[in-house]
Amino acid sequence: MKKLIVTALVLTFIFTLAACSAEKSTVSNGEIDLDLTKLGSTMVYSEVYNMIYEPSKYIGKTVKMQGTFTVAYGDEPDSFYPAVLIADATACCSQGMEFVLKGEPTYPDAYPQRGVEVTVVGVFDTYLENGQLFCHLKNAEIVK
């Protein structure tokens, strides 16, 4: 039994090394580097969490994602932050990914209504505001 368990441990160690070796995750689709619309909701939630947790790995990638459209308002009178909201399977947690549309679109004319399901394509980037790091999809397009 001891030999069996030791062998299992060694195999687990090798399996872990293999699992941790390849860091790259690419679900490419033509010009899109990361197509999250191909994934289930649990996978999407986890990947968006990773994008926000380790943004440096995703900067410059073209991302396509689907979720509920929402808008957050800032302290300034005209500041607004449109975002795609993704809920997890337990429906208690959600991640929002802010996006900035191409050109200079006006709000609310160029945007859908809150709560509407949207598909957005944009380039992942980070920016600093009030000393805090935020993530967004720049040059974004609402494709659906």
Binding site: T16, A19, Y45, T90, C92
Partner: peptide
């Protein structure tokens, strides 16, 4: 959401870092 994630696991197993794995 924090409480829900801690009590029911939510997707915490899918958001592990390499350090946590090791």
């Amino acid at each position: 959401a924090d409480v829900c994630a801690t009590l029911f696991g939510s997707t915490s197993i899918l958001t592990l870092t390499q350090f946590e794995v090791w």
